[in-house]
Amino acid sequence: MLKINNLNVGVNDKNILKNINLNINKGELHVIMGRNGTGKSTLSNIIAGKEGYNINKGKISYNNKNLLEMSIEDRALSGIFMSFQYPVSIPGLNTMHFLRTSVNSIRKYQKKEEYSSGEFIKIFKEKMKLVGLDESFARRSVNDGFSGGEKKRFEILQMLLIEPKLVILDETDSGLDIDALKIVSNGINSFRTNDNGFLLITHYYRIIKYLNPDFVHVLLDGKIVESGDQKLALKLEEEGYGWLEK
């Protein structure tokens, strides 16, 4: 569903991503690991459509469409969802209002019936339970005053409500305690089907062991230098990245 071919990305004069090739098919969960500053978040931002980057070379296709020509919202409407590493707080914007607007925009685009207020409240409450958020969340402003863990759970809640086809999880496990990590991982696993694909960016094995990914890739200095399965992540956990450097 997502095909990245020979992607080169920079900011100003600096090259960040170099010759990236990656295919994510339906039903697959890919993990990207790597040191800080190697371009992991740049890759997720490029897929989500954030501005401010130069695409110097390469292509990304999503369901056979040129992703790089799609607007940010069209990407979302077509089923791409990114769980943010640092979700922005929006004081004054009620969480439920925000999510209903989002979900209904996407449902409308996909020619599904939009949720009424009553229907949405019901499904919102149901999914909140799944990620361990209590009902008072419905009255709060988006990410405003949320703890680190609450922010990440709120991202997963959004994923569960939006029901995307391709999910980018940018350090969704960062800042989570052990219990929260389990809840978030269970939330992700509950949403995995043969029909959707995942790209998880992480520094730690601890979430990988809950998610059992199909592929693990290592990004170093803007390049994918190694790909493997879950065992690769365990090796990195034990030995670090030094052995991959020439």
């Binding site: 954030k50 501005e51 919202e73 990407r75 979302a76 929006i90 925000f98 607007t101 989002s102 996407i106």
Partner: peptide, 9 residues
Amino acid sequence: FYMQSRGIK
């Protein structure tokens, strides 16, 4: 960006 990435124009 956050809102657009959630499908809001």
